[in-house]
Simulated scan of single mutants.
Amino acid sequence: MSIQLGSNQEPPKQERSAETRRQLLDAAADELLDGGFARFTTHGVARRAGISRGAQQHHFPHKHRLVTAAVHHLAERSLQQLEGITSDGSLNSTRRVLDALFEQYAGPLFAAMLDLSLAARADEQLRDAVQREEHTVNRMIDEWAHRRLTGCDDAPADFDELFAMAISTVRGVAVLRLLGHSQESVQRQWKYTRDQLLRLLVENRS
């Protein structure tokens, strides 16, 4: 006699594995944001995800691999938030892109990366992994911004050089917030800096 499977049929093994990995990465990202690298443990990640230690070790046998994968996962979550922002080369839309970049570089993702970079100074294995992931994350964010800011026909001939300078400037001001400078002073500095960048990227096209 054949047995008909209902709608509660268990998902395929590959699908369950992918879901377990996603749960671990979500939990690892949140663990990193909440406690920093100093308090980050694979046991804590497994507990937060509601997954057995065996399943956690199957997907991520080493702490360093889990940490760097969590940073990459955070970057992908950040990019999903950014994708809704577009630019047509106008002043207002370019301002939105610059503001979004500033919030990214002053936000939890790069706070976690700064924390990891400091922790990795005395750990060669972690340092190499963090540096690779930092380059990857920065490239992802930069490529997003470059696509948004070159969506018009009258981009300056030296746009790539201006863009590189703008990114470095945004990061520099954002670090002030990560270092604990007052919200008010950082915001004043950012508004002034953003206006200067807008003049270079948009206003001098007319």
Rank of each mutant, 00 (worst) to 15 (best):
V175W: 11
M1L: 06
L82A: 08
D26C: 07
Q189D: 13
A111V: 11
M113Q: 01
G54E: 01
E15P: 00
Q196D: 05
S90E: 07
D88S: 08
G36A: 09
Q14E: 15
R65F: 08
S78P: 00
A55D: 07
A46S: 13
T42C: 02
T68Q: 09
Y192G: 01
S90W: 09
W144V: 03
L24I: 06
G50F: 02
N92W: 07
G6L: 14
S117A: 06
A166P: 03
A70L: 06
A129G: 02
L66E: 00
I141D: 02
E83R: 10
I167T: 12
V45R: 09
V130I: 04
V45F: 04
F163N: 00
H43A: 15
D115Y: 03
E103M: 12
K13D: 04
F110M: 09
R147N: 05
A29M: 07
Q131F: 01
V175Q: 15
E133N: 12
Q4T: 14
E76Y: 07
G89A: 01
L126W: 06
Q81G: 13
R47T: 13
L5T: 01
Q14G: 08
S52D: 02
F37A: 10
V45C: 03
L176N: 14
E19N: 06
Q131P: 00
A38T: 14
E76M: 12
S185Y: 12
R199P: 00
S78A: 07
N92A: 15
